[in-house]
Design a protein around this nucleic acid. Structure first.
Lengths: 233, 233
DNA sequence: CGCCCTGTTGACAAAGGTCAACTAGCGTGG
DNA sequence: CCACGCTAGTTGACCTTTGTCAACAGGGCG
């Protein structure tokens, strides 16, 4: 048993003190240390007992180091996405010296009780929603065209079916409708999508992925930089 | 029992079909209808059975209508923050025609099983983290100064203690370190904070709140618009 | 059939990103 | 314990991107 498990919300839920066992074990990290990395198999779940952890998303904007998506203080779980996803969706890094309690996914699984219980179902639904929520809305996530391309890549199918009004999509992506419209125009000019006033159809998924990933400093120019699928003007 | 509760993840968790009871009851909303409003008591939790719901945050940027924070498709809960918060933290609006299943907070509470169970504890911790995560990082949330002021208002105390490196805070707020630095300079010029290279101290909470809330078209000007606590230059 | 709302396009302004130079603070090593 | 060097932060100048305002057009709904 770690220090102070009796005072810990997780320890209490485990019945520590009542002879029960908590699957979480203390571990420390120094400031700056990595806890887990986005994309690697989500083997562990951690509970932050003290200190500050930042969650970064490498796949976002700057390929150099990823950017900060959220900050987690003491009393929160990190890596919980492992319950609904095979891999971590962000990179966790200790920002101060931290004390963590870690459990394996298997241990966590057992600790949570039977699959399909109401509380567990609600937890999993919430986690899935959180995983799906990862929208790029900041200017540091890349320019408007890039964010729109990224959004079309992973939400396009669902959202096209759902016919979300364009005004709301723009808002979701943190830009004005006019800017969204211009971004779509650019994507359509290079041949990644075909748009009408009310629909967006993806015609070149690969191109879209490429545009979501790279800089596009020369994106919407009238000289469609010889990209593979650039249509005749 | 609603239609198709046997096929529903929530119905299954409730044991529908095994003689058990599901606290959720079907309700429909037409496209554009409000489901609940940010700030009002969180009386109900909803499960989206079909259609699309957008979650808006009025307290963000444009006071006109609030902006879209997330989209929820079928198979997710909305309003779950009621379990850990007295009021809704966003406004939910049907974007298409939707079928919802609603339960009262009390019903949800009973359905989730005893307080303090592992799964329920994990759920609540997750929900609390989500509530706390509501960072303004988009340009549509207001200009840099406004976002920094807003962040200082609700995270300042915790984060100042935790000494989060300034570079990471900038990143979290969706801006460059240079821009963050300039925003702090502006806030310090009008007398809301006192900064050193490594610390930020709030000296006028009210002013900070005001700056977080309003437009600041004339914010960083050298004429410190006669605000109450503007320091001698 | 016509009105209204949403989306599109253009021109302009302003906010913020970028690059560069500089400085304070911190840790390291002598 | 002090000096040095390194990194994070600051400030300035410039330029790109995007927000803003306005005019217009297509579609949907009454």
């Amino acid at each position: 048993m770690g220090v102070n498990c009796r005072n810990c919300e997780v320890g209490a839920a485990s019945g520590v003190g009542g002879g029960q066992f908590c699957p979480f074990v203390d571990r420390s990290r120094r400031a700056g240390e990595l806890i887990y990395v986005e994309g690697e198999p989500a083997e562990h779940v951690w509970f932050v007992k003290s200190g500050t952890v930042v969650l970064q998303r490498e796949s976002y904007g700057h390929e150099t180091e990823g950017h900060v998506r959220a900050v987690r203080f003491a009393g929160t779980f990190i890596g919980l996405e492992g319950l609904v996803n095979d891999v971590y969706v962000d990179t966790a890094r200790a920002s101060t010296a931290v004390v963590l309690c870690g459990a394996t996914r298997r241990g966590m699984d057992a600790w949570l009780g039977p699959k399909g219980s109401p509380a567990r179902t609600a937890l999993e639904i919430t986690l899935r929603a959180n995983c799906a929520d990862q929208v790029r809305r900041s200017a540091t996530d890349g320019n408007a065209t890039k964010r729109v391309a990224a959004w079309l890549c992973d939400e396009g199918p669902r959202a096209t079916t759902a016919t979300l009004p364009r005004r709301l999509v723009a808002d979701l992506l943190g830009m004005r409708p006019e800017t969204f419209s211009r971004a779509l125009t650019r994507l359509s000019k290079v041949g990644a999508v075909v748009t009408t006033r009310t629909t967006v159809r993806i015609v070149d998924q690969d191109l879209l992925v490429r545009m979501a990933g790279r800089d596009l400093s020369n994106d919407g120019g009238e000289a469609a930089n010889g990209a593979a699928t650039a249509p005749g003007s």
